[in-house]
Write a protein that binds this DNA or RNA. Structure first.
Lengths: 99, 99
DNA sequence: CGGACATATCAGCGCGTACTGAGATCACAC
DNA sequence: GTGTGATCTCAGTACGCGCTGATATGTCCG
């Protein structure tokens, strides 16, 4: 899973809301359905994408499934962006000549 | 322009390549067309999205238009991700009870 | 001025994907 | 076991978006 895929997963508005909710506390699907107002099927589909991107972990508790945000993946992505910003700042003023 | 929009702009593979190329040096459209192998129209359309997201700045030089990456926007986005990771790490162990 | 080149814009097509509804699976309570 | 509730998966639909081709604008050079 490359970084562009992580960006694509985070780009959806509903997934962004879910990520922000999960940053505060671990929630099960029913909580997310209640908080977002979206359909249970819809929430479950988005959670599948977040799982595939390894952005969340699942903790099955009986018939409830709790979801938790993974800080390490977010930090890796932040480090990638910072490295890009560093490279751009170092190379300020360098401009490839046009023929 | 919210953060989800920034993620959406960065999620495209061709735009990611353009961003990485622009991190190394300022390039004009013809360079990007040559480097990516994409159509001029296609590159120009993607540059429009990058401009709308304020991820790049333009420097018109005669008939050439140079594009440069903006490190500050990347740093803001990285800070948002880091803040999310911090929040998630602080609230490890807190779990809203299910009815 | 006229021709060539760099760039941007617009309309149209096609594919990916978000949302929906129905059905399947699993766990708990009785 | 049976019923209920939570969750997931699977088709199907609809809309957004990336790609293309043609066109417009603007700049340099002869």
């Amino acid at each position: 899973m490359s970084e562009a895929d992580l960006f694509r997963v985070l780009a959806d508005p509903l997934r962004e809301r879910i990520v922000r909710l999960l940053a505060r506390e671990a929630l099960c699907t029913c909580h997310l359905v209640e908080e977002t107002g979206a359909t249970q099927t819809n929430v479950s589909n988005h959670l599948r994408h977040l799982r595939a991107a390894r952005l969340v972990t699942t903790e099955p508790h009986g018939r409830y499934t709790y979801y938790r945000l993974r800080p390490d993946v977010l930090r890796e992505l932040a480090a990638t962006l910072t490295a890009l910003a560093d490279t751009a700042e170092e190379n300020t003023g360098s401009r490839r000549p046009c023929p």
